[in-house]
């Protein structure tokens, strides 16, 4: 459920147009990045923030061009390090709204280390991880999220790498907000962006993004009309997990094992798994709905919020420690600090 926020800064309300820059956009025509940019520009005016209080930080890759196209403060940093740059900025300036734009190569391969550490620390930032399961900017090598056997430029005989499951990885790193959306479902994506923003703590939003040049249709089962209803499972808080053309299929927990049941063939809605995004055990199970569509009896791919919990943010605790010390000892006196413990006088 998307909540529309009104501008609270007392100025003329901003529109999506205000967030466009004068820079020519350099993504390939048809790239999924366009839709994500549009949805971000659509929700930004709803946040009630001033433009100057927003910062977008990216690493390297196609998605990381994002800051150039968004009229806020921004930094296009170096490969894999957007998360670390953002951590320093947020620690120094907790009042800013900090967004990280990264990709499957940037955020999970070269920058995987920083991603997991940011999540455990729980800085209040929003990570938008554009997952296209391929290296686009370097022209088509397999990525850490490419499925096994992927034939790409660097894997002419198919990839032998086992892919990351980004959602399970984020949960494993104790992220406090973990969600998935897709470029081709604007309403859902906007909703997830707003939820990410509203979460106080690190928000990890994986966005399936089509790279129509090097990995076209990687997510077609979830995005195309003909298959979406059967293959994409939209999680709604407090509601049973249902999918299919007429929502006739559901997920039931058989012990800890999720099974697909058919409501039209005698299964009862009362027996279905009720989605609870605050339940870590369930989040861990549903994050593992990750089998390939070709696998016999595979489970649908979930979209929405897998997990959300609240834990103090790093920057808040950092500020609190400082305030507590000052409360106990008073503001530091430089002369006293420099003099240290023992001094002597030479006449």
């Amino acid at each position: 459920m998307a909540e529309t926020l009104t501008a609270t800064n007392g100025e003329v309300a901003l529109t999506a147009k205000d967030f466009a820059t004068d820079q020519e956009i350099r993504w390939c025509p048809g790239c999924g990045d366009y839709s994500i940019l549009k949805q971000v520009h659509t929700i930004l005016p709803q946040l009630g923030l001033k433009q100057e209080d927003i910062v977008f930080i990216s690493g390297i890759g196609c998605s990381s061009r994002f800051p150039y196209y968004t009229e806020t403060f921004g930094m296009h940093s170096i490969h894999g390090r957007a998360t670390a740059v953002a951590s320093g900025l947020k620690a120094a300036r907790p009042e800013l709204s900090v967004w990280i734009v990264t990709g499957d190569g940037d955020g999970l391969s070269i920058g995987g280390n920083h991603t997991i550490h940011l999540l455990r620390r729980n800085f209040d930032v929003n990570i938008l991880l554009f997952n296209n399961e391929i290296y686009g900017l370097t022209k088509g090598q397999y990525s850490p999220t490419s499925p096994e056997n992927k034939v790409a430029k660097s894997t002419p005989f198919g990839s032998i790498d086992h892919p990351f499951n980004p959602i399970a990885l984020a949960l494993g790193a104790d992220a406090t907000f973990v969600a998935r959306s897709m470029d081709r479902d604007p309403a859902h994506l906007q909703n997830m962006l707003l939820r990410s923003y509203k979460h106080a703590g690190s928000s990890f939003l994986e966005i399936y993004q089509n790279c129509n040049i090097f990995n076209d249709m990687a997510f077609e089962s979830y995005t195309e009309k003909s298959t979406k209803k059967d293959e994409a499972l939209f999680m709604v808080q407090g509601q049973p997990l249902v999918f299919g053309a007429n929502n006739e299929k559901g997920i039931k927990l058989d012990g800890f094992k999720p099974v697909i049941v058919n409501l039209e063939e005698g299964a009862s809605k009362d027996d279905l798994w009720i989605h609870d995004e605050h339940d870590m055990v369930k989040a861990n199970i549903i994050s593992r709905f990750f089998d390939h569509v070709d696998v016999e009896g595979h489970l649908p791919r979930p979209f929405g919020v897998f997990y959300q919990t609240s834990r103090p943010t790093y920057e808040a605790m950092m500020a609190e420690q400082i305030n507590e010390v000052i409360k106990a000892k008073g503001e530091g006196k430089l002369d006293k600090l420099i003099a240290g413990g023992e001094t002597w006088v030479i006449e």
């Binding site: 740059v85 320093g88 900025l89 947020k90 620690a91 120094a92 920083h114």
Partner: peptide, 9 residues
């Protein structure tokens, strides 16, 4: 890089 972020801030 965290220091670069802080410097930017």
């Amino acid at each position: 890089t965290s220091a670069i972020g802080a410097a930017f801030g």
